[in-house]
Design a protein around this nucleic acid. Structure first.
Lengths: 337, 337
DNA sequence: CTGAAAGCGCTAACAT
DNA sequence: ATGTTAGCGCTTTCAG
């Protein structure tokens, strides 16, 4: 293993000079710099991460806590994770992957051991048990998701409430008066995941304001569950002409069932999805949708974190504005029959 | 920050004793151990990761390289990643998340810096450019996926060739004579991803042996691409009654299109999928399928790696046996019309 | 069964 | 603009 000292010797300079060439923390004459860089290349030197972390008290690692359960938009999680990893690299950080399994203990462990300089938490619940710890230790962190009380925390999320409102606004604008919302699995609501409840709030308050009715039904994924849910919806509200779907694994079943029942999309019923663009485009009907900006969320989270670590920090909440893309699944409400 | 020295002082023992209590590398009297453990708890001590890595030359971190691209079955990747992370934790390791973006450089960086003790590579191509590096450095590693030449490497993978054979065996056993294979996107074959080509090999050689015909068509995901592909298949082989699908985003479109064309599953055509069980179960027809054992692959990979790190190593190739579950999408071939 | 002490490779004062 | 040096907190000989 090549050490800094060996590089220094090879280049005929002191250890600190090599260190400073690497860090750029003080000015080095061009010729010295070149000699050192040359030696580094020739010897194939790589700074030792452990030694660096010990001496500098910085690991250059960001911990990312992903949820253990996979009952949600897995591809979205993955996309966020990848965005976090690549963005982190551009800032000189690596990413440590933690699953939710350890729970709050993981926070203690990582904080206490100095394994990571900061952490990003995904899938934050409204009353998340990890939050008290984050507040009391002065661990730098960013949440992807918005808890009930974001005070003293930095959060990045899609503005779910605005997302819900946007969906209703679009449908109401097309003349739909009875809207059904196909939601996530009941478990998602039960554990008070912020995004699900906030979407609902946005949906309902815009509905109230614009005089349309919304009926919300959680739904497990899959064909059978969707069939049941759909039957109940039409049973209760036969006049339903608009759908908002926030459940990736219900999208295709819903379309198939509507087709099967002879309800044409968008002539008879309109469907707005809240899902990644890829899903909207690949569906059997190209779906009007509000995209989930996974990459931006990951990128924002890292950039905020790096800013904090560099002392340019600011505890605040960033809500990304939703964007609705009109595709082939929505149209004017049919004349009342 | 609490240090080992402080714990030692608090417990009235020397630093080394505390260290040995932690590592268990030499025997400690019960009373001493308890005093030390007590102090550790009272002071809330966490060993410093950097110092530990520096002194022991072990980081207790495993690097996991995931593919950057997301044109494949993302949930499988995620499931593997999570299985890797949780299994690693049970062995005292953390996981560093690397994207394929850096390519072979990441291998050098991680190896050279001692950031990780070992690495797991996913999405290995037949002639993967990272492999020469792995062979020449004595970096411990495990591949998830099987390259063309696994010599000197440890690999874990599903036995894709047997998987292909199993699918054909099942369909041929039911009397199907003309089988169409809906494959992954062309790009997947072009970059010579092992699993895709091996599945095909297995499919074809069993077909040859059992006297059935197979027609292979790669397919981009989605409804439109599937429609085109299906039309071409029936055009070329009107007598096709069996399908093997190895492309998650083609599954539901295929079922929908068959339904739409009045071909009943499984009465008129049978479908076998190669996909995670969850997909098979949630599809609009419960699919006979060969499962992709994501969790086992992740678990195996970690356990092999840990064995190697502990000197119990063995460079070898572990191919997991495929299992076919019969569900509602396959049945006897219809009498020739 | 326990202590003392020598580093591990690097960073960051403190010098000059 | 560069060199010297004192640690960072832990592991692990070497010595009892």
């Amino acid at each position: 293993m090549v050490t800094l000292a060996e590089v220094a010797q090879h280049a005929g300079v002191s250890a600190s000079t090599v260190s400073y060439v690497l860090s750029g923390k003080r000015s080095i004459s061009a010729t010295t710099r070149q000699r050192v860089e040359q030696s580094i290349r020739e010897l194939g030197y790589h700074p030792n991460a452990g030694a660096r972390a010990l001496a500098s008290n910085r690991s250059n690692i960001i911990a990312l806590m992903v949820p253990l359960r996979t009952d949600m938009y897995v591809p979205v999680m993955m996309e966020i994770a990848i965005a976090v990893a690549t963005t982190a690299r551009t800032h000189g950080y690596d990413v440590l992957l933690l699953t939710g399994e350890e729970g709050p203990d993981a926070v203690r462990r990582v904080t206490g051991s100095g394994l990571a300089d900061a952490m990003i938490l995904m899938d934050v619940e409204l009353e998340d048990e990890r939050l008290p710890l984050l507040r009391q230790t002065d661990q730098h962190s960013v949440l992807i998701g918005l808890p009930a009380d974001p005070n003293g925390l930095t959060c990045v999320d899609l503005d779910w409430s605005a997302t819900g409102a946007l969906c209703v606004e679009h449908l109401a604008g097309l003349g739909h008066r009875d809207i059904a919302v196909i939601g996530e699995a009941p478990a998602v609501y039960e554990r008070h995941t912020g995004f699900a409840e906030r979407t609902l709030d946005g949906l309902r308050s815009w509905a109230r304001a614009s005089g349309v009715r919304v009926l919300h039904r959680p739904c497990e994924g899959g064909y059978d569950a969707m069939a049941l849910t759909l039957a109940r919806i039409f049973d209760e509200r036969p006049g339903t002409t608009g759908f908002v779907v926030q459940n990736e694994s219900a999208v295709e079943p819903l379309l198939a069932l509507l087709r099967q029942q002879g309800r044409a999309v968008p002539e008879d019923v309109s469907v707005v999805a809240i899902c990644p663009d890829q899903v909207a485009v690949q569906a059997s009907v190209r779906l009007t949708s509000v995209a989930i900006p996974a990459q931006e969320m990951g990128r924002h989270a890292v950039e905020h974190l790096v800013a904090k670590l560099d002392g340019r920090g600011d505890d605040d909440v960033v809500l990304l504005a939703p964007e609705l893309t009109v595709r082939a699944s929505t149209g004017p409400a049919p004349a009342a029959s």
